[in-house]
């Protein structure tokens, strides 16, 4: 619309720029606390098992999203697994080209029904495939802080 009083040059169209600073803390939670503590302190991945659904959740969750049971059976799963799917990402968070493309993957950890979304490293992006066996590379214990970034990346298992 705006037909009656149209600005006749686009630079005359007035706009105000503003931003919304948003800062939060995100509680890891009961299950998240133990999951990340195990990674940080022991370099181990833990899942929670739902006996009703016979599923092992990784990352560990406090309840089963399928049957809604509270979960308290903790099991250790492997630090390695298979690439369920992956992508080679060429754009950054502002839709600008990345200097070095990122390889991201969902890795289903052996011994679990879940997995982790993370970077794939120490490989040529062209060599990655669905089903590839990969293992987690953790930061040195002193550098770990109890976050998903305690994992540096996953890398192909050298046979």
């Amino acid at each position: 619309m705006a037909i009656l009083n149209k600005p006749d040059k686009v630079h005359q169209a007035i706009a105000w720029h503003g931003d919304i600073p948003i800062t939060n803390r995100y509680t890891a939670g009961v299950a998240g606390e133990r999951f990340f503590r195990e990674v940080k302190e022991n370099g181990k991945f833990m899942g929670t098992r739902c006996p009703e659904c016979d599923l092992i959740y990784v990352p560990a969750t406090m309840f089963c999203e399928r049957c809604f049971a509270e979960l308290d059976e903790w099991v250790q799963v492997e630090n390695q697994g298979q690439v369920v799917t992956y992508t080679i990402l060429y754009w950054d968070l502002d839709d600008q080209p990345l200097a070095v493309p990122l390889v991201l993957a969902l890795v289903q950890l052996d011994g679990s029904d879940g997995g982790l979304v993370h970077y794939l490293g120490e490989t040529d992006p062209e060599d990655v495939y669905i089903g590839m066996e990969v293992e987690a590379v953790l930061k040195d214990p002193a550098e770990r802080e109890g976050s998903i970034l305690d994992i540096r990346h996953f890398r192909p298992i050298q046979v």
């Binding site: 990402l89 991201l104 970077y119 976050s147 998903i148």
Partner: peptide
């Protein structure tokens, strides 16, 4: 907690 720290588009 799980995904955003990867800072991926």
């Amino acid at each position: 907690v799980l995904n955003r720290p990867l800072r991926a588009n």
